[in-house]
Nucleic acid binder design. Structure first.
Lengths: 226, 226
DNA sequence: CCAAAAGTGTTGTTGTTACACCCATGC
DNA sequence: GCATGGGTGTAACAACAACACTTTTGG
């Protein structure tokens, strides 16, 4: 008789031009790994879809609604949970951290953002899951402009550039980056500026979803970076 | 109390220069969908890993060992199995059909290869799973030379070319294709020819895994086609 | 000698990379 | 007036796409 539990876990990424790319973590309220940082997640209910389960857990544990959610991978080693067999279907999500006041809720003691490069010790095999998610996100930005789910609706071009640099882990040429991105035509320049700290005010831009989906439907392939 | 079963299903691709790209299917021996074509697969045992489960099922149901196996996606809609809640973790595999005499075994009535473009009606949501796998395989060949798992150890260049054409669904320029592939350096020309039917005999080539992994380790990015 | 499949280079076009100075603001 | 961050164009080079004739075999 099969006796395997099914859970979902979520790697939620947030971005802030100052902080870089962060991952949302909670501390576990119960054993095993009580008090240890972990990914938000939990068992799937009998009659809910996997995606619904992830969204529910994120709401319950961190009070957050994601902007974008995609299945990542299923982790199913027989000993990944010390109690009993649990396979976890991992998702990753993108969110604008400023949109939410994250807050610990049921099942979680604390909730916090951690820079993706400076993570604490994590429960279970969650470190592996996060690594998998980072790899996926890095790959993803090369052919889909997911980054826009992480930025404000209107953003200075330098935010986008910094996001790509943070994700890719290397510098980009400002002029070439802008040229390439703008050539696709799914970003529009607005007639507004923003001033942040010192320096010349920056022109604001926004993502044009309609144009993006048109391009995508017509079989266009985005090839952004290596 | 959670009551969800966990199964695995496999989309095994095979290739033959005459037949094109095929998918391995079985007919179900029991209800539901008794007698209907379906993907090989079944429930995961309590103490086996997901990958082991896939390999075991392929052996049990079709007498096949895959050459390459990769997790595809997990399908978990609450009503995808009419009996009870079953989530399926789908894998896709590659195999050289000539290496095996496929044969129906326990749990399967018949086993057969079907051209990936001419599939019969499939049980459960297996059609969706196959479509997902085809999409993935198409994407995959663009940045990893998985195709070699589908070809004979030694093959004429035209086999590789036909494989890519079958997968991509469009023609390729013979000269440009060869130039591009050979430039990576992980294919070596042998001092052997093969004669198949009419026409000039073809030079044989083989994949050099060592060189391939060297390139890959050194962070090289293969970018084959759109 | 004809049909079938394999083999092979060059050129124009396009895309990519490298690179440096000026501009608008706050302090 | 200086420090900070924003904005912009060009030229050299590399990659890609398009293109057709010759070679070797079997029948």
């Amino acid at each position: 008789m099969q006796n395997i539990k099914v859970s979902v876990d979520a790697v939620v990424f947030g971005y802030d031009p100052e902080e870089g790319v962060s991952v949302l973590l909670i501390t576990r309220k119960y054993e095993p790994f009580k008090g240890v940082w972990a990914l938000p997640g939990g068992l799937v209910l009998n009659d809910e879809s996997l995606e619904t389960a992830v969204k529910r857990e994120l709401k319950e544990e961190a009070g957050i609604d994601v902007n974008y959610l995609e299945q990542l991978y299923s982790f199913g080693k027989p000993d990944r949970d010390p109690r009993n067999r649990v396979i976890s279907i991992a998702y990753y999500g993108l969110v604008r951290p400023k949109d939410f006041q994250i807050s610990a809720q049921t099942d979680a003691e604390h909730v916090a953002w951690f820079n993706m490069l400076k993570l604490p010790r994590l429960a279970f095999d969650h470190k592996q899951i996060v690594e998998h998610a980072i790899k996926r996100l890095r790959g993803k930005i090369a052919y889909e402009p997911v980054g826009f789910e992480l930025l404000d609706k209107k953003f200075p071009f330098s935010d986008l550039e910094k996001l790509y640099q943070a994700l890719l882990g290397h510098e980009l040429d400002r002029r070439n980056f802008k040229k390439k991105i703008m050539a696709y035509g799914f970003i529009e320049e607005l007639d507004e500026n923003i001033q942040r700290g010192a320096g010349r005010p920056a022109r604001l831009y926004q993502f044009n979803k309609k144009k993006y989906f048109q391009l995508k439907e017509s079989g266009y392939n985005f090839d952004l970076f290596i």
